[in-house]
Design a protein around this nucleic acid. Structure first.
Lengths: 217, 217
DNA sequence: GGAAGAACGTCGTCGTGGCGACGGTTGATT
DNA sequence: AATCAACCGTCGCCACGACGACGTTCTTCC
């Protein structure tokens, strides 16, 4: 379902610099959330945007059996701004996965402040539009590609410094919007080609270059 | 290729109101283009954004054999702002199809003006983010849907007041990123169900409600 | 009015990927 | 140590749609 996966979470979406933050600090509130608690829920009126200071936050859509994790974002990411600026309800839910500290920007405090500092407003605009363009471009890239290259692409982006990815095949399948079986088959091929090693809930990238080649098939 | 088709052209993307325009009129220039001339070309440095005043403009990507029309937009649409704000080159080309009048906003004149009027800046931001969200939502909707519902959806949106759509099957296929044969088959089924009548380079929607039902299958 | 080109209708073949099923393996819980 | 749930690996079947091919019909331009 969520091909856009990481586009939705927008982990690289950071419209605010340190200097901006200093200016805005007056209209923000640094709050702390325990694991499992919600920053906001899908459908709630969007009264605030959030900037993650530390910890990880899980973005998901739907509830119960239709619950789908869309992304997991960390420090520096901005959440909920689309809904807040757009005057609509939140379009996804955000839940803390561990101890999380976030800045909360209340809408009625933030908007006047933005009006006073057009430069920040402009930067936010630029970041938003850049994201729009990146999303379009990425979707075009991913779209009619084979599951194999999609998986390769995701592994390349999701791997940490040691080349490890700790995701179950089901999670990967959900993120890419394909079936678990297809992911399994793709991983099998990657393994046969020597690009990765697989284990329980864990994948190790052994040949990033080959992975990259396959991703751009 | 261009599943995003109309999202790219963003025909409903109108961040500027009449009042805004009056304020910005000083930094804009109303220019006129003959049919076939270009507003800008893919790859050119993005020094200006455009607001269509009258006439139609064709958006395409690629050149020569890879040229693909991505959208056709008319009065009220804004072009080139993503590239201009993002400091990159234009990501598509824009060509006048008939006599066209557009406002040209030069970057170095517009930016200072926006800094003076944060309200307009904010409105642009909101419009941009809204578009981002709409694109994501739309892609998710369209993506793994059957060709039948994609065609139905497109016809519903593209039909004019008389319910007519003047597009060849090849054009529709390109816009949706599917094969002509599949479009033909889908149209055949729609015809059999009495939702449309088909002719040479032309389709008449006879039952919009049924079309809508099929589109959201 | 005739020729060339574009668009339409239809067929068969083939690859990709979704889905259900089932057994084996790993990790967690007590 | 036993038990249970989650996860992995694999198989077969089936639907959707891409692609090539071919004949027909409609436009357009001499």
């Amino acid at each position: 379902m969520a091909w856009l996966a990481r586009s939705f979470g927008r982990p690289d979406y950071a419209p605010l610099t340190g200097a901006d933050l200093e200016i805005l600090i007056g209209s923000a509130e640094l709050i702390s959330k325990y694991p499992g608690t919600h920053l906001f829920r899908e459908g709630d009126p969007a009264l605030a945007a959030f900037l993650v200071e530390s910890g990880d936050v899980e973005i998901y859509r739907g509830t119960g059996s239709t619950r789908r994790v869309v992304s997991r974002v960390g420090s520096g990411s901005v959440l909920g701004d689309i809904a807040m600026f757009g005057d609509g309800p939140y379009i996804s839910s955000a839940q803390a996965v561990d101890r999380v500290r976030v800045f909360r920007f209340d809408k009625d405090k933030l908007l006047p402040e933005l009006a006073k500092h057009p430069a920040i407003c402009l930067r936010w605009l630029v970041a938003g539009l850049r994201q729009l363009e990146a999303t379009q471009r990425r979707v075009i890239h991913l779209m009619h590609k084979t599951v194999l290259s999609q998986v390769a692409d995701l592994l390349g982006e999701e791997a940490d410094a040691k080349g490890e990815v700790r995701l179950s095949q089901i999670t990967i399948a959900t993120l890419l919007g394909v079936s678990r079986q297809s992911v399994n088959e793709a991983l099998g091929r990657l393994r046969k080609q020597g690009a990765v090693e697989t284990g329980y809930r864990q994948i190790r990238v052994t040949d990033p270059d080959r992975l990259e080649t396959i991703a751009t098939s």
